[in-house]
Nucleic acid binder design. Structure first.
Length: 391
DNA sequence: CCTCCACCGGAAAGCCGGGTCA
DNA sequence: TGACCCGGCTTTCCGGTGGAGG
């Protein structure tokens, strides 16, 4: 990275960089570290702008935030201007600043996912064509197949140089953890096995240093709460459980209302001992719950998208199956945390009367079963050729 | 071999709420 | 105040589609 960026010191534009690596392998922190060191060395000639594309996910918001970091004052409004005006304003600002601008786009794959390759092209073009060509871009992604999704004009501009960040192994993680612990805790306050366990769990999770550090932090907190002098493996195990539930709880809490209702629909269906739920059933449940909660339901097309979102969030798994005559649909399964999911949903004030909704579905489902048995009788009768019954 | 089900998922468009600007 | 801009959410429309059953 330093090699690529040091061309700034020789007064020439650095090439665009693309960094790959799983989460928690240090892509972002190393980038920020290198940039800060560069800024120390050459405070007058470098300007960097770090943006996470999960938050700033449109060319518009990215260009605006870049412009803001170029010239501290923000005379560009957060919305309202047409894109090309922001564009020209930005290039004139870059020109005026007379510095090299490095735009760091973290989770750049999110930008492309949401807006398509074009959005990235706009930004790359803005960078390439900035007066005096003083802008370069560092893209950070954990999606190794990222470039395959780009068309060639974007690819060639972005992928001028790439660096792969391999995952940390357990002993590297231990090296990361140890010095961090040393400053805050007394000597030997953490059992050697506990430290090793943290590193091992982190390594299992694709060498994720962030995870290992979080694990250690919570383990220490738990030990303090227990009034223990020493952090043991037991604390680490408990810490892991805590982390997992925290993530799930937060995921569910931040879900949009309709998505929550869709999960309820899934839970209601699975409580009726359905192992393979299909989209149609979930949608029917969803509509029932909406009715009970006096919320207007969204269309089935939309629910289909919400189900895809849920799959992305890891709350459900779906497989597309064809049932021949009986259509083509998704088989939907809740993940193994169903009970917890239900609990968090019930605690959600937005979803106050979930219990009532489930009940109402169950009664409705009862009726549906009854109707079905009637239908069965009729069909059997038809088979036997009794015309009276058929009518 | 053909049909036809019950959806999938892309495209386009509308609406809303946030904003700017003359 | 009306003409715009953008993003997010949603609906409408519609062309697929895998495979059981005729």
């Amino acid at each position: 990275m330093v090699e690529a960026l040091s061309s700034i010191m020789r007064n020439s534009r650095p090439s665009n960089l693309l960094l790959y690596g799983k989460t928690g392998t240090g892509k972002s922190s190393i980038t920020q570290y290198v940039m800060s060191k560069l800024a120390e060395k050459a405070p007058d000639s470098i300007l960097s702008c770090y943006l996470n594309c999960q938050t700033f996910d449109s060319p518009y918001s990215i260009l605006i935030n870049v412009a803001k970091s170029v010239s501290g004052n923000d005379n560009i409004p957060p919305s309202g201007w047409p894109l090309d005006r922001v564009y020209t304003e930005l290039s004139s600002k870059i020109e005026k600043s007379k510095k090299y601008l490095v735009i760091i786009l973290d989770e750049i794959d999110k930008l492309v996912e949401k807006n398509g390759g074009d959005s990235l092209y706009v930004i790359l073009k803005a960078a390439d064509e900035s007066k005096g060509a003083k802008t370069s871009i560092i893209g950070i992604t954990n999606d190794t197949s990222f470039t395959e999704k780009l068309d060639s004009r974007v690819k060639s501009r972005l992928n001028q140089e790439s660096i792969v960040f391999p995952p940390y192994n357990a002993s590297e993680l231990k090296d990361i953890l140890e010095p961090r612990v040393k400053g805050i805790l007394a000597e030997n306050a953490i059992e050697e096995p506990a430290l090793n366990l943290c590193a091992a769990i982190g390594a299992q999770e694709h060498g994720d240093a962030r995870k290992a550090i979080d694990l250690m932090r919570i383990a220490i907190e738990l030990a303090i709460r227990d009034d223990k002098e020493i952090v043991t493996t037991e604390h680490v195990y408990r810490s892991r459980d805590r982390l997992e539930t925290d993530v799930l709880k937060e995921t569910i809490r931040t879900l949009p209302t309709h998505t929550k209702i869709v999960i309820m629909g899934c839970i209601a269906a699975s409580e009726m001992n359905k192992t393979n739920m299909i989209t149609g059933e979930i949608y029917a449940n969803y509509k029932d719950i909406c009715h009970d909660m006096k919320i207007p339901p969204v269309s089935s097309r939309r629910v289909s998208d919400l189900l895809s979102d849920l799959e992305d969030a890891g709350l459900i798994t779906t497989t597309i199956r064809s049932l021949g005559r009986y259509g083509r649909t998704r088989y939907i399964q809740l993940n193994e945390k169903e009970k917890e999911m239900k609990k968090y949903l019930m605690e959600d004030e937005e979803m106050g009367n979930f219990e009532a909704s489930t009940k109402s579905i169950q009664t409705r489902f009862g009726n549906y079963e009854a109707n079905n048995t009637n239908l069965d009788k009729i069909l059997t009768a038809a088979d036997e050729g009794s015309e009276a019954e058929i009518s």
